[in-house]
C-alpha cells in the first residue's frame, strides 16, 4: 500500500505569494449539540471552539463549523483513532462522528501579500478575519474555508474534487504583476 494523496499532490506555485498543497490531513466531522460537543472536544484533547473559532493543541485543531458541527483536523493517520476515542466518549449521546479525511484538502497561501490572493477570490471580508477564526465562504465558484494559522499565512480548505480548481484559482490570483498594491 502506498501513501494517500490529495487531488494535487505536492502542488506548489510561487508568485507574489506562495501557494502549496499541505498534503493529506486527518479530519473528523462531529455532529451534536451542547454537552455532547463539550465531551467531544475533551475527547479530542482540544478546547471547545467558540462560534467560528479554531482551537488547537498538540497538533490537533478543532474548528467550529456550525452550531451543531465540529471538525477535527489532525495528522492523516491519527484520524481513525481520534474518531474512535470521540465516539466512545459520546456513548449514547445523539451524535454523528465520521472520518472525513478524504473529503477535503488544505492549501497554504503565504507571503507578504498573501491577503491579496484571497481578496481576489472571496466576498468574505479578509480584513475582518481574526487570528483563530475560520471563515466559511466561497472562493470564486467553490465552497471553502479560510483561517490564519499565523501572520501572513492563510490556510484554505476546499473539497477534494475541486482541489485542482482551487490550486489553479489561487495560483492565478498570485501571478506576479497582478499585485493589488493596497
Amino acid at each position: 500500500m502506498s501513501d494517500p494523496v490529495t487531488a494535487t499532490p505536492d502542488a506548489r506555485y510561487e508568485g507574489f505569494a506562495t501557494v502549496t498543497d499541505t498534503g493529506p490531513r486527518g479530519m473528523i466531522t462531529i455532529r451534536g449539540e451542547g454537552e455532547t460537543l463539550v465531551k467531544a472536544a475533551k475527547a479530542a484533547g482540544v478546547d471547545l471552539p467558540d462560534t467560528r473559532a479554531v482551537t488547537a493543541k498538540g497538533g490537533v485543531q478543532l474548528a467550529w463549523m456550525s452550531p451543531d458541527e465540529l471538525l477535527v483536523i489532525c495528522d492523516y493517520p491519527e484520524a481513525p483513532a481520534i474518531a474512535a476515542k470521540v465516539e466512545k466518549a459520546l456513548g449514547k449521546d445523539h451524535s454523528l462522528v465520521a472520518v472525513v479525511s478524504d473529503v477535503r484538502q488544505v492549501f497554504r497561501v503565504e507571503g507578504a501579500n498573501a491577503d491579496e490572493v484571497l481578496r481576489k477570490v472571496t466576498p468574505a471580508n479578509i480584513d475582518a478575519l481574526a487570528p483563530g477564526e475560520m471563515r466559511r465562504t466561497r472562493l470564486a465558484q467553490a465552497a471553502g474555508a479560510i483561517w490564519m494559522p499565523e501572520a501572513d499565512v492563510y490556510e484554505v480548505m476546499c473539497f477534494r474534487s475541486v482541489g485542482r480548481y482551487m490550486f489553479d484559482l489561487l495560483s492565478g490570483a498570485a501571478r506576479p504583476g497582478s499585485e493589488l498594491g493596497l
Binding site: A140, Y165, L169
Partner: peptide
C-alpha cells in the same frame, strides 16, 4: 474575471481522473 479557460467553472474530478 478569472472565470475562463480551465477556471470557467469548478471542474470536479474524481480521484481517478
Amino acid at each position: 474575471g478569472e472565470a475562463r479557460g480551465e477556471l470557467f467553472q469548478p471542474l470536479r474530478r474524481t480521484p481517478m481522473h
